[in-house]
């Protein structure tokens, strides 16, 4: 067994796992954070996307031991403590960017990372940036709309004071 110490959604957590334990199983089964879904189980679908030190990663393709010392953000850690949605969640809500909802946690985490990494996102950039996240309801159009809306919100928030968008 290996001792893994993580910061998950801002809170220090320690767990004793077999080295072969995947990060997604550590989050779901050991820490009870079941918001992160398992979809394809083969790093294709992105349902298990979380942030590792701020960058999107597929938690089904990482060992928990690889994340030792890392800062993990899951969907449970995205909204404000009072329940106020973050800008990506809010955009998904407003654009009706979810149908069955299974891909949504992964989509939101991937979108947050994408908006951080690529400041000038356009529609093509969103589509290629989310190519590793599958929506089996095929609700892509509204997801793309939501991510573009959230990207515009982030661009406005990050604009230097006095500048016009």
């Amino acid at each position: 067994m290996s001792l893994v110490t993580l910061t998950v959604n801002g809170e220090g957590r320690s767990l004793d796992v077999e080295p072969r334990t995947l990060l997604v199983h550590a989050l779901r089964d050991h820490l009870g954070l079941t918001g992160t879904n398992i979809g394809c189980d083969s790093s294709s679908c992105g349902a298990c996307t979380v942030l590792v030190d701020g960058l999107s990663a597929k938690s089904c393709t990482m060992l928990a031991v690889q994340a030792d010392g890392a800062e993990i953000t899951t969907i449970e850690g995205v909204a404000e403590p009072d329940g106020t949605l973050n800008s990506v969640q809010q955009a998904f809500h407003e654009c009706h960017a979810l149908q069955c909802g299974y891909c949504t946690p992964g989509m939101v985490m991937a979108a947050m990372s994408l908006i951080d990494e690529y400041p000038d996102l356009d529609e093509a950039g969103v589509r290629s940036g989310l190519e590793g996240n599958l929506c089996r309801c095929t609700g892509y159009q509204n997801i793309v709309d939501a991510v573009l809306q959230a990207a515009a919100t982030a661009a406005t928030a990050n604009a230097p004071a006095g500048s016009t968008p």
């Binding site: 790093s43 992105g46 996307t49 590792v52 960058l55 999107s56 990663a57 597929k58 393709t61 990482m62 991937a110 990372s113 994408l114 990494e117 940036g129 989310l130 190519e131 590793g132 996240n133």
Partner: peptide
């Protein structure tokens, strides 16, 4: 290569 999440790792 792959997608952004893959490229991060």
């Amino acid at each position: 290569v792959g997608d952004p999440a893959v490229r991060h790792r």
